[in-house]
């Protein structure tokens, strides 16, 4: 939005001209139409498959939005209360070492993956090396205590599963960080994500920066989260369930399918362990792949990343994450589970 004296002026230069249609009016018309067409809307959606899809869609939104809110609040707090020079002092100057610190510090943010995207973006904005911020992005949702405890509960009598998940996810995050140091290019990241906010001075100013940053991040990321939820709900209804069944024997196919499924279903990292546990026809290794890939990259994360860091970043970062996560999970499984099992 242009910085003009009248903060209300969005698309129109100066005052909006009379008779010009703005998004406020569009919103009002859409709302009125929707209310008028409510019974029609309900009738259209009264098909079993659509009903199931709609429920799953709302469920993913309701489940993920509070975590996104948590993420934008942390992002706002970093922008307002943590000056860039403090962050620079805390993190090691050496980028490779910073990646290690960022990966381990992911243990501290106990949230879903949606929370970590705005936080990582803000860290980059505050001058943290992108490699370290991206490592944090991948580590935070997968290695925090809540997720690990959930995994332990879902797999009673299989402590190796928790260890393997922790190791596989941390390895994924760090390998991606180091890959970024070696090959990553700053110009892939959209310019808006890199923009530094001026350090806030004074109490009132800080709170304004806090609220504005949180609001802006929420508006930016929220739409993409909804898009991800729509895609995952649609695919969840469309993907036939037989995918699970016949895979017990073919281990390589099982791994590939479970990795793809993790992307498609976009489950919350605190719940995916229970889903993996219920797929008891499969050996442990493909289920571990499911648990390592899911928090690192899935449909709603891809949408969030594309919206936050830009499309040219997401189409490079997401496939690389997918391959690295699958590889790390297989290696971690062979070490900690002692084979396919």
């Amino acid at each position: 939005m242009a910085t003009v004296s009248d903060s209300a002026a969005g698309e129109a230069p100066g005052r909006p001209r009379k008779g010009r249609i703005t998004s406020v009016e569009v919103l009002c018309v859409v709302l009125l139409l929707a209310i008028a067409g409510q019974s029609w809307l309900r009738a259209v959606l009264d098909v079993p498959a659509l009903r199931t899809g709609a429920t799953v869609f709302v469920a993913v939104c309701v489940q993920a939005l509070p975590f996104l809110v948590l993420g934008v609040l942390i992002s706002g707090a970093i922008a307002a209360f943590v000056p860039a020079r403090v962050l620079r002092r805390v993190l090691p100057r050496n980028e490779s070492a910073a990646v290690g610190v960022a990966g381990v510090s992911g243990i501290a943010l106990a949230g879903c993956e949606c929370a970590s995207v705005p936080v990582a973006r803000r860290l980059i904005g505050q001058g943290v090396a992108p490699a370290a911020a991206l490592t944090f992005l991948l580590a935070a949702p997968a290695v925090n205590p809540v997720v690990l405890v959930a995994t332990a509960v879902a797999f009673p009598g299989e402590p190796g599963m928790v260890l393997a998940r922790f190791a596989g996810s941390l390895a994924t995050a760090m390998v991606m960080g180091w890959l970024w140091i070696r090959w990553g290019k700053l110009e892939w990241i959209a310019e808006r994500a890199l923009r530094r906010l001026p350090d806030a001075e004074g109490g009132r100013d800080r709170w304004r920066t806090f609220a504005e940053t949180a609001r802006g991040d929420l508006v930016d990321a929220g739409g993409f989260l909804v898009l991800g939820a729509l895609v995952s709900a649609a695919l969840g209804v469309l993907v036939p369930d037989e995918w699970f069944g016949a895979l017990g024997e073919q281990i390589v196919l099982g791994i590939v399918v479970m990795a793809v499924l993790a992307v498609v279903l976009s489950l919350c990292s605190e719940a995916d362990a229970f889903v993996a546990a219920s797929l008891s026809a499969l050996p442990l290794l493909p289920r571990l792949v499911f648990l390592v890939v899911g928090p690192a990259i899935d449909a709603k994360l891809f949408a969030l990343q594309a919206g936050t860091f830009g499309r040219s970043f997401a189409i490079r970062f997401a496939p690389a994450t997918f391959v690295v996560a699958t590889g790390c999970a297989v290696v971690a499984g062979l070490i900690f589970l002692g084979g396919v099992r």
Partner: peptide, 18 residues
């Protein structure tokens, strides 16, 4: 308030769906 979001925000319309 500062205006840092001058990029296209068409995706924000999707917030209406939920």
């Amino acid at each position: 308030p500062d205006h840092e979001h001058d990029h296209s925000t068409r995706s924000t319309w999707l917030l209406l769906v939920p």
